[in-house]
């Protein structure tokens, strides 16, 4: 082989070796993110038994988005898990942590649901979870709180503020139950979901109504 051939082979081998190193080597971004524990880090004044575990059977997460800039259509997520505690006496003890499998999106249209799960929108196989974790609560009176937290969607984590209403506490068949309703509006483009922004709105309103037991 002449020098040119040798150099081309060497360059090709180099490119392949570099690619192989990037794919298989011990680089940080290549590694799958470690599974986060569902157990929140407890504050000093809160015991584990104080936390309510989300009851997915009696909880709902719905969202709405504008279509063709004329009307809203609604969808929901059929599965969720998480924990929460809303402490009206000491709001700093409060916390919410919710994870939602994006694969569970449901808009009552099989074709649209598959499209929503595709890389065009949620890319559910690539980013299987949508998650929210609260950082701080501030009381607005009348059982209303502004909750600062982090929303992870489409592989991106952004700070958001959620309006939360403490909807009550009571006694269920298996112990104490509590609930809340949270509302927030996000711009999907800020999370990298930019597909079809002309026909499908950028603003997505999410309403989360959870019941938990302990």
């Amino acid at each position: 082989m002449n020098k040119l051939t040798l150099s081309a082979v060497a360059a090709g081998a180099g490119v392949t070796a570099l690619g192989a190193f990037l794919a298989f080597g011990p680089c940080g971004p290549c590694e799958a993110p470690a599974e986060q524990s569902m157990t929140p880090v407890l504050y000093a004044t809160t015991a584990a038994e104080d936390i309510f575990k989300v009851d997915p059977v009696h909880s709902s997460i719905v969202f709405r988005v504008k279509h063709n800039n004329v009307s809203y259509y609604w969808g929901r997520f059929n599965r969720m898990e998480g924990t929460f505690l809303i402490d009206p006496t000491t709001p700093s003890n409060s916390r919410i942590e919710v994870k939602v499998p994006t694969e569970s999106v449901d808009t009552a249209n099989e074709g649209r649901d598959r499209h929503l799960r595709s890389p065009d929108f949620f890319s559910a196989a690539e980013f299987p979870e949508l998650a929210f974790k609260s950082k701080s609560f501030s009381s607005k009176g009348d059982n209303i709180y502004d909750v600062q937290g982090e929303l992870t969607l489409h592989g991106q984590t952004k700070p958001v503020t959620v309006r939360v209403e403490d909807t009550g506490r009571g006694q269920g068949r298996r112990g104490e139950v509590a609930g809340f309703e949270a509302t927030l509006t996000i711009k999907r483009s800020e999370f990298g979901m930019t597909h079809m922004l002309g026909g499908i709105g950028d603003d997505v309103r999410i309403i989360v109504s959870l019941q938990g037991g302990r």
């Binding site: 074709g111 649209r112 079809m196 499908i200």
Partner: peptide
């Protein structure tokens, strides 16, 4: 085309 279900988006 034949196995596509209902309209998407």
């Amino acid at each position: 085309a034949a196995t596509r279900t209902s309209e998407a988006s």
